Simulated scan of single mutants.
Amino acid sequence: MTVMSSKNPSFNHHRRPFRDYILCLDLDGTLVDTAPDLVRVTNETIALEGLPETNFKTARREVGYGSKRLIASSMERFGHSVSDERLTELQQWFLNRYAESLSDHSRPFPGVVQTLKDLKRSGATLTVCTNKPGYLARPLLETLHLTSYFANIVGGDEAPKAKPDRRHLLQAAGPNRLGKKIVMIGDSFPDIRAGHNAKVPTILMRYGYNPINAHRLRPTIALDNFRDIPKVLTRL
Rank of each mutant, 00 (worst) to 15 (best):
H14D: 11
L126P: 06
H215R: 01
E100P: 01
D28E: 00
L102R: 15
R60P: 01
N225K: 11
G208P: 05
H145R: 08
G208L: 05
S106R: 07
D20G: 08
V183S: 01
E76S: 15
E53S: 13
D84M: 10
A137R: 13
G156D: 04
T54K: 14
T143M: 08
P201N: 08
R177M: 13
R86I: 08
Y209R: 02
G50K: 06
L169G: 05
T34M: 12
E44S: 12
I192Y: 07
F189E: 05
K117H: 03
P175D: 02
Y209G: 10
I203N: 12
H13P: 00
I71K: 15
L119T: 07
K120Q: 13
V200A: 00
G134D: 08
L136C: 05
G50H: 14
G29D: 00
N213D: 15
A99C: 08
R167Q: 06
S188A: 14
M4D: 14
L51K: 11
R107F: 11
N55D: 14
F56D: 02
K231D: 15
R16V: 03
K120R: 09
N210K: 08
N225M: 02
V128R: 12
S67F: 12
T130M: 04
F109C: 00
E44Y: 04
E89H: 04
I192N: 07
T147G: 00
H105I: 01
T130A: 05
P139Y: 03
I153D: 08
L236F: 06
Y207D: 01
I153G: 03
K161G: 12
T88K: 14
L87R: 05
I46K: 14
K161V: 02
H215E: 15
N225R: 09
L102Y: 13
T220N: 11
D228G: 07
Y65I: 10
R227V: 06
D104M: 09
I221A: 03
S106V: 07
G174I: 00
T202S: 11
I185M: 00
G29E: 03
R40H: 02
F18T: 12
C24F: 07
H215I: 09
T2S: 14
C24R: 06
M205E: 10
V82K: 03
A198M: 05
M4F: 12
K120I: 10
L217C: 13
S83V: 11
L233W: 06
R235W: 00
D157Y: 07
L204Q: 04
S73G: 10
G174K: 07
F78G: 03
H215L: 00
D191H: 11
D33K: 01
R216I: 01
A151Y: 04
Y98K: 04
R166A: 10
V63Q: 02
Q171T: 00
R121H: 15
